[in-house]
Nucleic acid binder design. Structure first.
Lengths: 340, 340
DNA sequence: TTTCTTTGTGGAAACGCTTCCAGTACGTTT
DNA sequence: AAACGTACTGGAAGCGTTTCCACAAAGAAA
């Protein structure tokens, strides 16, 4: 069937070991033998079988990327960052979508193990600590990205969500808003929790009360944002600003506001989180907190490469990116008529 | 290091073959032996090594997905469709981004071969016919998706770009527009070419001339759309409508129009292509031609599964989706003042 | 009782590769 | 002249599986 090293050896009239030496530049080979082997390999269209190789070398040139959903506009950039760094180093990446489903996370990790990945980049919702710990124990490095996994001694690439949320809410406060709602994301995720905590912190720092009726927990989706908008804008007195758990939620809130006859930003200021590519393109362009998605992916893969190469050992290293508040058109100072 | 079948055999006090039989449900095993083996496997945390297995079974449960760029909002949905179908069937997918670079396409195909994928879904720019033909010859099925590869006898999942473009332009003509520009995509891609052809066909059917000065060839990106807008809106007499090669280009054109002081759709109607998730969310919401991205990915993977299972053999099967014109707010009838 | 199935089991070969080990044929040193 | 590297080469073991084959035990048929 497929062309093997044996075929090449026969074609070139040499032994198996010699072919291997030529192909891997290991050990000495005379120039003319080398040329003969190379010619034979070319003529036969030989492609090495990495599975066979990995069986002896214990490395597959393969990593796994586990994310909730590639369809969420935050993740393509992360994925691209991972893939670029991986590809450059000769690695290939398995993509897994979990939809934040712990069971799917479980089976994905297992599938990746069976396929002998050299490492895993994990963006998970719930804490799958047990499974990941097993990986680490077995010498398969893991880099946790975007979402913390508590009590796991793995490398991590995170964003200071608390800081970002605080900056966003502080911005709204600076604009004169006092009734600021929070259209939060998933309650079970560290991401959702940290942003909520930052929201509370900013309010408290400004001496404003935290009104739980102005907090809506949902998902990180547009649909959830619409729902949040409907609920939150129904509160009385109506909030004049909303801090959304991410950009999709913000877009949903804006849509709900429109349907309720409210203008953004005239009647309602909205801040998002992520700075997805199209945040700048919607109307009004979204004021938001930028996460360096591409860089996060790239760094995560870089850290993973360092672990896999064995250059880095020991306790988990943690990199925390500082997000950046991007001012655009969806926020403005509170107008007088909103009072009361 | 890792737990192998041999460890399980020793732990359970049976032979290797018996363990294999239990794990694969092949051949007869007594109930109590089976239980003993299962218990041993569980106790040791045994995970099978698919590489070793594939060496003898010649199947890896692995496929490759080659796309231009996951960061282009059309592809996440395709990818998700592929992944869902794959994952459901127990497969895992390698993701490769090529940036439409033939050299990268080449090395990606090679990498996937080395990793012994059971099949490949290919979305490529240029025709990499040779390489793909080799794959097919060697019994590795390929499904070409979204973009045709001429003269290749592989399964394909396509969209009738010509029809979609014609529908879009016909819509503009029905609205009374006569000077209709085309902000085209990549000239080397079948996609770009087919949409251009559809644009021409619609004009000709309506008895309108095709004015090459109203056609701008670029890339499928926002930046290219901005550039196209700047050029096309500088023509005199100014076009009153633009058919864009895809949604990103359309967004770029709209942005350029705004910067030139034009309102959309009052002064300029714009139609896109793809119906990316946020097309409905920008302002004005984009009139566009919808491609069923998710379904395309899913179908491509389904067809690939059929080939890999050997259930389907013979000549390439081709599925062509009929796109759908989605009317939204970026188009409207030509107003009087635009005349002349 | 003997022979034949059937059921359960283990050994060993094979998958494609790397790597260790043992060679051969040289030219260099003593 | 003998002894010793040194450059090159091939055989064979082993990586973790599956699968073919042989074999033992036991019940069914002769």
């Amino acid at each position: 069937m497929a062309v093997t090293i044996k075929d090449v050896a026969r074609e070139a009239g040499v032994g198996l070991a010699t072919v291997s030496r030529v192909l891997n530049n290991s050990g000495p080979v005379s120039p003319e033998t080398r040329e003969r082997v190379l010619a034979a390999a070319r003529a036969l269209g030989y492609v090495p079988n990495l599975h066979a190789r990995s069986l002896v070398s214990r490395a597959t040139g393969t990593v796994g990327l586990i994310i909730p959903d590639i369809t969420n506009p935050f993740f393509p950039a992360v994925t691209r960052g991972v893939e670029d760094a991986a590809s450059q180093a000769g690695y290939t990446v398995f993509l897994c979508n979990t939809d934040n489903d712990p069971a799917k996370e479980e089976t994905d990790v297992r599938k990746l193990r069976e396929r002998c990945v050299d490492g895993i980049i994990f963006v998970g919702s719930q804490a799958r600590r047990k499974r990941l710990e097993r990986l680490l124990q077995d010498g398969i490095p893991v880099v946790v990205t975007d979402r913390e996994v508590p009590d796991l001694d793995a490398d991590s690439v995170l964003v200071d969500n608390n800081w970002g949320a605080r900056a966003a809410v502080r911005h709204l406060i600076d604009l004169g808003h006092t009734r600021i709602a929070h259209a939060a994301g998933h309650r079970q995720t560290p991401t959702g929790q940290d942003r909520y905590a930052g929201y509370c912190a900013a309010l408290e720092e400004a001496g404003l009360p935290v009104d739980e009726s102005l907090v809506f927990w949902g998902e990180f989706t547009i649909e959830s944002g619409i729902q949040a908008g409907q609920v939150l804008l129904g509160r009385s007195p109506r909030p004049t600003a909303v801090f959304a758990g991410n950009d999709l939620i913000a877009l949903g809130v804006i849509r709900a506001a429109r349907e309720a006859g409210l203008r953004v930003p005239e009647d309602l200021s909205v801040v998002g989180f992520d700075d997805i590519p199209l945040a700048a393109l919607v109307s009004p362009p979204l004021t938001t907190v930028r996460q360096p998605a591409y860089e996060m992916g790239r760094l995560a893969m870089t850290m993973l490469l360092e672990r896999m190469s064995g250059r880095v050992t020991g306790a988990g290293r943690h990199h925390v990116f500082r997000p950046e508040l991007i001012l655009r058109g969806s926020t403005r100072p509170r107008s007088g008529q909103d009072l009361g």
